[in-house]
């Protein structure tokens, strides 16, 4: 059989480190270790992705509380339910797509129904990976939102990754964290708390853009462009997608009359759907448009390429605002 022999003149870790683009900061992983040091109930489970889910430090520092589940996500969710029933608070880790789609029935029956404090942590949200369709979570928010008792959280960026740990722990039952790793440039970024309510990042009277995750930055950029064209819009970071801050959604829709929802996710079942459901049931006659993946599978590619090709960028938000404004105009004309 083949046995491991080491490279001629360097250690394995030297070798891998040399080739890497540089270590990525571990905003989430470091916060999880800090929380676990304070709360002995916290354990981490991981389905063979310690590096990509930032749990490598946890594995090194708290090895007796780190449980490697192997490439077996459905089993891992069941195991986490077992840990939770024994009084632990398990954080389970894989890519977004695998902890949701691949273990959905297990999440529903063993985590959501019994309201267990299992914190389901996924990475690679939406179109942020070269690994293609199999690794792109375009429907995870829809899936998790549809489960009773589930809280769905998506940080706006690296600044809220640590806050996601706090938010998950402050929520008594099951939580889904939809995470995107910060790049090397985000090292040392000042952390911001992650709110249960919508966070108004910019105020403007002409319209409102509700955004989550990667789309928050795009929404702020779109707002700059719109401002140059004379439309001063509000931008709201919705980091807690479920339960949605419906009061704020209704209030801003009423006061601004034009609403755009933007997300790095399918237009079906995610933030855009949640906002639309809220507005219809509240009877708010706002102009409305969604920005998201248009009910299609995508492909592997760099993040900027994918975000542009699949219509998730700032210019797509600007265009959506135009559609929503036209619709608003039509509504008002119809009324007159």
């Amino acid at each position: 059989m083949s046995s491991a022999s080491s490279a001629a003149d360097q250690t394995v870790s030297d070798f891998i480190a040399r080739g890497a683009t540089g270590p990525l900061p571990r905003h989430y992983g470091d916060a999880l270790v800090a929380a676990a040091r304070k709360d002995p109930r916290i354990v981490a489970l991981c389905a063979d992705l310690p590096g990509p889910t930032e749990t490598d430090l946890f594995q090194a520092e708290l090895p007796d509380r780190y449980f490697e589940a192997g490439i077996a996500e459905a089993n891992m969710i069941g195991m986490a339910a077992g840990f939770a029933r024994m009084g632990q608070i398990p954080f389970v880790h894989s890519f977004c797509v695998f902890v949701t789609r691949r273990a959905y029935d297990q999440v529903a029956n063993q985590v959501a129904y019994p309201k267990l404090p299992v914190k389901i942590v996924g990475f690679l949200p939406g179109l942020t990976t070269m690994l293609g369709v199999s690794h792109q979570a375009i429907d995870d928010v829809a899936l998790m939102r549809a489960l009773p008792n589930m809280t769905v959280i998506e940080p706006s960026g690296p600044e809220q990754l640590a806050g996601a740990v706090t938010a998950a722990l402050e929520t008594p039952g099951p939580v889904y964290l939809r995470m995107l790793r910060g790049d090397a440039a985000s090292a040392g970024i000042a952390p911001k708390p992650l709110l249960r309510t919508g966070e108004v990042l910019r105020r403007g009277p002409h319209g409102t853009i509700f955004a989550s995750g990667l789309s928050v930055a795009a929404a702020l950029e779109a707002a700059e462009t719109l401002a140059k064209d004379g439309s001063d819009v509000s931008v709201v970071n919705i980091a807690t997608v479920k339960p949605l801050d419906t009061a704020l959604v209704v209030e801003l829709a009423k006061s601004t009359g034009i609403v755009v929802a933007a997300e790095n996710h399918s237009i079906i079942g995610g933030l855009g759907s949640a906002v639309a459901e809220t507005l219809m049931e509240a009877g708010v006659p706002a102009g409305f448009a969604r920005v998201g993946i248009q009910d299609t599978f995508a492909e592997g590619g760099t993040t900027p390429y994918l975000q542009a090709k699949y219509g998730l960028g700032a210019k797509d938000i600007v265009a959506a605002y135009g559609r929503a404004a036209a619709q608003r105009h039509a509504i008002e004309k119809g009324r007159a």
């Binding site: 083949s2 046995s3 491991a4 022999s5 080491s6 490279a7 394995v12 070798f15 891998i16 040399r18 080739g19 890497a20 683009t21």
Partner: peptide, 8 residues
């Protein structure tokens, strides 16, 4: 023999 899964 180097176990580098996604080695650069």
């Amino acid at each position: 023999g180097i176990l580098g899964h996604n080695m650069k």
